[in-house]
Write a protein that binds this DNA or RNA. Structure first.
Length: 399
DNA sequence: GCGATCAGCT
DNA sequence: CACAGCTGATCGC
């Protein structure tokens, strides 16, 4: 997880950051790598989010002070009044939450005002074969109304040409096809606490069956209005959605001693590979944009400055490297601006492990439960510290 | 005992 | 490796 120092504490707006003072806090979605520092007792200031995220938040943090929440209708522009840390005067900021098509309630935020134009995508999928993504595109272009984006904070999770995925609709059908080829098997599908609901819906509708989920997950489904398609009664279905971390090769083998079972892992990660002979299937169903989708997005936005919000040691995903040519000449400097945004950066963390020798790459679903990989690890753990991530925008401050 | 943080894992 | 997240240890209160 990212660790930040805080040399300057006058943030006006914080996005997915919760541990430092700010005048307004924005939450893109309720995945836990975006809520680090948020808790039941958090009370630093007004928290802006989508209405669905607001409901999910109160469910996740039971007892959270609901009076802090400002739920913003998605797709419309709202005006905030803040105090300039420079002049002490009023600063009006327009904010437009736009459906990010990542998980239920997820939004990007477009901030506009006299002090600049900033787009923070959060995690998003720019899947223009879907109606929803096209509505997001319309909303974004309407709100921009020709204005150039000064700073783009981009979900660069898969910002490398090696990442290519089918649409989620096609990937969902791949899952259905796999299940239909195993009519006498139990099926376990790895999911997280939020996300991939549309995949499960597609399966449920195609196969005319309910899907088992664990009790806390049923509560989420209930909140999303999907509870009729799910059950916590294993006798009602052969298909179970289980926590992703529980889908290990060992667990699959154990299940197979009881009843023939296949496991399906919906993921965009490249090191997860099919192993049908072992009953482990990986399907490229992902809630993050593929490289081509990011490229399409960049053609629309063409910001002056681009900042990736994710870092990875796996491969080069720096958006400046891949898209720098599409941006303004000055895509590194932040000189001459004055409104401080503090944003969450680094959902993949900044921890870098350097290893001697090679560790074999295995799909998580295929990996042996034995700590062979761990035993093979050698070398030194290196902590890479990033400085406080603040980007000043605007034009009337010299520093 | 509780919450926050972190190590270690998938 | 780690999309996002769990478990358990430890530390300060």
């Amino acid at each position: 997880m990212p660790r930040f120092s805080s040399p300057v504490g006058n943030g006006l707006i914080a996005v997915d950051r919760w541990t430092e003072p700010s005048q307004a806090y924005f939450l893109t979605h309720l995945h836990s790598d975006h809520t680090q520092g948020l808790s039941v007792h958090w009370s630093r200031g007004p928290l802006f989010c989508s209405p669905i995220t607001a409901r999910l938040l109160l469910c996740k943090f039971k007892g959270f002070d609901a009076s802090l929440i400002r739920d913003l209708e998605v797709g419309t522009t709202h005006t905030l009044s803040l105090i300039s840390p420079v002049t002490g005067g009023e600063v009006k900021v327009r904010v437009t939450p736009i459906d990010a098509n990542h998980c239920p309630g997820s939004v990007m935020y477009l901030f506009q005002g006299e002090l600049g134009c900033v787009l923070y995508t959060g995690d998003f999928r720019w899947e223009l074969t879907s109606e929803r993504a096209n509505m997001s595109k319309s909303t974004l272009l309407d709100a921009l109304n020709g204005e150039k984006v000064d700073i783009l904070y981009l979900d660069n999770t898969y910002c490398n040409p090696c990442f290519s995925f089918p649409s989620r609709k096609d990937a969902a059908q791949q899952v259905v096809d796999i299940i239909e080829k195993h009519p006498d098997h139990e099926v376990v599908i790895g999911i997280d606490t939020l996300g991939k609901e549309h995949l499960l819906l597609h399966i449920s509708e195609s196969l005319k069956t309910k899907i088992w989920v664990w009790p806390e997950r049923l509560e989420i489904m209930d909140l999303l209005g999907l509870d009729e398609l799910f059950t916590t009664d294993t006798s009602q279905t052969r298909i179970r959605a289980v926590p992703r971390y529980s889908l290990t090769q060992n667990n699959l083998e154990s299940l197979n001693t009881i009843f023939p079972t296949i496991a399906i892992m919906p993921t965009g990660l490249p090191w997860s590979q099919n192993s049908p002979e072992k009953g482990a299937y990986t399907v490229p169903y992902t809630a993050h944009s593929s490289f081509l989708e990011l490229e399409e997005f960049m053609k629309v936005i063409r910001p002056s400055i681009i900042v990736g919000i994710v870092s990875s040691s796996y491969c080069l995903i720096d958006p400046k490297h891949h898209f720098g040519e599409m941006c303004g000449v000055d895509n590194c400097s932040t000189k001459g601006h004055n409104l401080f945004f503090k944003v969450m950066k680094g959902s993949h963390g900044f921890k870098v492990r350097k290893k001697e020798g090679k560790t074999k790459v295995l799909a998580s679903v295929q990996r042996s439960g034995v700590n062979i990989v761990r035993k093979e690890r050698r070398g030194v753990k290196i902590e890479e510290c990033e400085s406080d991530f603040e980007v000043p925008i605007g034009s009337d401050c010299s520093s």
